[in-house]
Amino acid sequence: MIRYILKRILMLIPVLFLVLFIVFTINYFSPGDPVSSIVGAEATMEQRARVRESLGLNDSFIVRFGRYVLNVATKLDLGTDYITKRPVRDEIFERLPTTLSLTFLAIALASVVGITLGIISARFQYSIFDYMSTLFSLIASSMPAFWIGLMLLMVFALKFRMLPSSGFNSPRHWILPVATIAFNVLAIVTRNTRSSMLEVIRQDYITTARAKGLGEVKVIAQHALKNALIPVFTVIGVQIGRTLGNAVVVETVFSIPGLGSLMVTAVKMSNFEVVQGCIIIIALSFCVINLIVDLLYAFLDPRIKGQYMKAGKRTIAKAAKSGGSANG
């Protein structure tokens, strides 16, 4: 198991390198000059040239890319914000907790509510509740996050003055942005839980459990849920990535100082160092979250844990065999 984890961690390196290369290339060849954003319209040509030189923007692609990779690898230095002159790493890590918090709260809310609704829908298939739940899922997954956010703002912040319209300083501030992101995920989790549960509760062992005289709650909770939730957790894991993307939009609507709003501003200002840094951190976060989700499977399902361990042993056996062959 430890070997599996280490292997996955090592795999992060080529993935991040590839992401960095693609982002850097796109930034390098994109139109737009960050110097205009830095110095403004009133600056002289000499000042612009001086700023370009000081930022190393006149260097070739290879030199700039190599310098950047070296700084990241050796000093974890993600560069300097062209506009504020602050280290990009500091700016990102000031805002990353907010974005991750927004994401995880939304996922937690969507998971709890979605799984519950999905189970009830499956248990009472073709009932009024099931139809309402299906309709809700269809509507919620069709509405863009931006629109949901604005609608919630207009109702709860503007009309009823129940909740604040912007910021992320207190639990009251969390409610609307978290609900906005959770909406889409909730719909998907509900549908997947429902279909997964329907598949499982039709199995013979469920019929056996009922025949044994077990109560319905025990049948669902102790027998059906285990197998039904594995694919649902897969879906939730995938949705985390989508949620990180939605956070960008939601942070703009609710004026939340997170990574998404930092990246949007940086793109508009051609602040390439910040854009690169944000994308690397998001990619890293996504990879780490996927790894944690995969490890959660092992925690939840011993069969999967066994597979991970077998894969590790197979790798060791393979290595031993090829070493033995080389030695004759």
């Binding site: 000031e94 907010t98 991750l100 992320f168």
Partner: peptide, 13 residues
């Protein structure tokens, strides 16, 4: 998951 999400704003880097 919930604890991590709630703690992030409190323990900001």
């Amino acid at each position: 998951l919930l604890c991590v999400a709630i703690l992030f704003p409190v323990c900001g880097y």
